[in-house]
Simulated scan of single mutants.
Amino acid sequence: MRDKCGACKRPHSVCWCPFLPQTTITTRSRVVILQHPAEEKRCLRTVPMLELALSPGQCNVYKGKKFPSAKHTGLEELLRVPNTLVLYPSKESIPIENIPKVEEDSEPYNLVVIDGTWAQAKSMYHNSPLLHSCIQVKLPMKGESEYIIRTQPNEGCLSTVEAVAEALGILEGRHRLKHELLQPLQALCRFQIWHGAVPHQSKKTLLDIGEYRKPVGKRTRKKLYSLVDIPSVQDCKGKEPS
Score class of each variant (00 low, 15 high):
Thr84Arg: 04
Ala163Arg: 07
Ala165Ile: 01
Asn110Met: 05
Leu181Pro: 04
Tyr212Leu: 15
Gly210Ala: 12
Pro199Gly: 11
Ile230Ala: 14
Ala121Ile: 03
Gln58Ile: 02
Pro241His: 09
Gln136Phe: 02
Tyr147Thr: 06
Pro37Ile: 12
Val113Arg: 04
Arg190Pro: 01
Pro215Leu: 14
Ile33Ala: 07
Lys178Leu: 00
Ser90His: 07
Tyr109Trp: 00
Thr27Ala: 09
Ser29Lys: 02
Val102Ile: 14
Lys41Pro: 00
Glu162Lys: 07
His200Thr: 06
Gly143Lys: 08
Leu224Gln: 13
Leu139Ile: 01
His72Glu: 06
Thr84Val: 04
Ile114Thr: 14
Ala53Ile: 04
Ile114Ala: 10
Glu211Leu: 13
Glu107Tyr: 10
Ser123Asp: 12
Leu20Glu: 10
Leu54Gln: 05
Glu76Ser: 12
Trp118Tyr: 02
Leu50Pro: 01
Glu166Phe: 09
Leu52Glu: 08
Leu168Cys: 03
Thr84Phe: 02
Met141Ile: 15
Arg2Met: 13
Ser13Gln: 12
Leu75Phe: 04
Ala167Met: 01
Glu51Asp: 07
Pro68Phe: 03
Thr73Pro: 04
Glu76Thr: 05
Ile193Asn: 12
Gln120Arg: 06
Glu97Met: 10
Leu54Asn: 11
Lys41Cys: 00
Glu146Asn: 08
Gln35Ile: 03
Ser128Cys: 11
His132Met: 06
Gln152Thr: 07
Leu139Gln: 01
Asn98Phe: 10
Cys43Leu: 12
Gln192Thr: 07
Lys218Ala: 15
Met124Ile: 15
Ser69Pro: 03
Ser133Ala: 15
Tyr62Asn: 05
Val164His: 04
Tyr225Gln: 13
Asn83Leu: 05
Ala38Ser: 13
Gly238Cys: 02
Arg30Lys: 12
Glu146Ile: 09
Leu158Lys: 15
Arg174Cys: 04
Thr27Ser: 13
Leu181Gln: 09
Gly238Ser: 05
Ile96Phe: 06
Glu172Tyr: 08
Asp208Leu: 15
Thr24Asp: 06
Ser133Met: 08
Thr26Asn: 11
Tyr125Arg: 10
Val113His: 08
Leu87Asn: 06
Pro231Phe: 05
Arg176Met: 09
Leu207Thr: 07
Val81Leu: 12
Leu44Ile: 01
Leu79Cys: 11
Val32Pro: 01
Lys142Asn: 07
Pro153Ala: 12
Leu227Ile: 04
Gln186Met: 14
His195Gln: 14
Leu207Cys: 14
Ala197Gln: 11
Ala165His: 04
Glu155Thr: 13
His132Asn: 08
Ser133Gly: 07
His175Lys: 13
Leu188Asn: 10
Asp235Gly: 10
Pro215Asn: 15
Ala70Pro: 00
His132Gly: 10
Ser29Phe: 00
Val31Asn: 01
Gln234Val: 13
Glu146Pro: 00
Ala197His: 08
